[in-house]
């Protein structure tokens, strides 16, 4: 009985470890220290385009495996988000965010771009960027 319980605890533990978290990261020049999921949703929908200090927000999309966890974490669907970007691009309202395919590229780009925001797997986060939100 004890052994069975141990196995269940181990399996649950492994499943938690295996579940990859996603972190919303930003350039260190950004004044905000944390963001809510709804704020991140507004930013990625390009409905909020300025930081609290008036600086321009530069959204960078991540097309790696972190994508699905991120969009479900902020209550959006990746397909409808792309449609919103295309609508804003084709009506002249905004430029669609540039996209990169690896967490390392994203971190380098965010670290080098003032006002930039993106997301990566939590295990990839580096000291060159700041974390504004962890999505589970």
């Amino acid at each position: 009985m004890k052994n069975i319980l141990l196995i269940i605890v181990c399996v649950l533990g492994l499943s938690v470890i295996g579940y990859s978290q996603v972190s919303v990261i930003a350039n260190k020049s950004v004044g905000e220290s944390s963001l809510s999921a709804s704020k991140v949703s507004a930013i990625f929908s390009l409905d909020q385009t300025k930081w609290g200090n008036g600086g321009k927000i530069v959204v960078i999309d991540n097309s790696s495996e972190a994508k699905s966890g991120f969009y479900s974490g902020i209550g959006k669907d990746a397909l409808s988000m792309k449609k919103e970007w295309m609508k804003k691009q084709l009506t002249g309202e905004a430029k669609a965010p540039e996209s990169h395919g690896s967490d390392a590229e994203i971190i380098a780009k965010v670290a080098a771009t003032p006002g930039a925001i993106s997301f990566v797997k939590s295990s990839s986060v580096a000291a060159s960027v700041k974390v504004l939100l962890d999505l589970k």
Partner: peptide, 8 residues
């Protein structure tokens, strides 16, 4: 546009 919680 005015984002208010989950509504814009």
């Amino acid at each position: 546009k005015l984002p208010v919680e989950n509504v814009t």
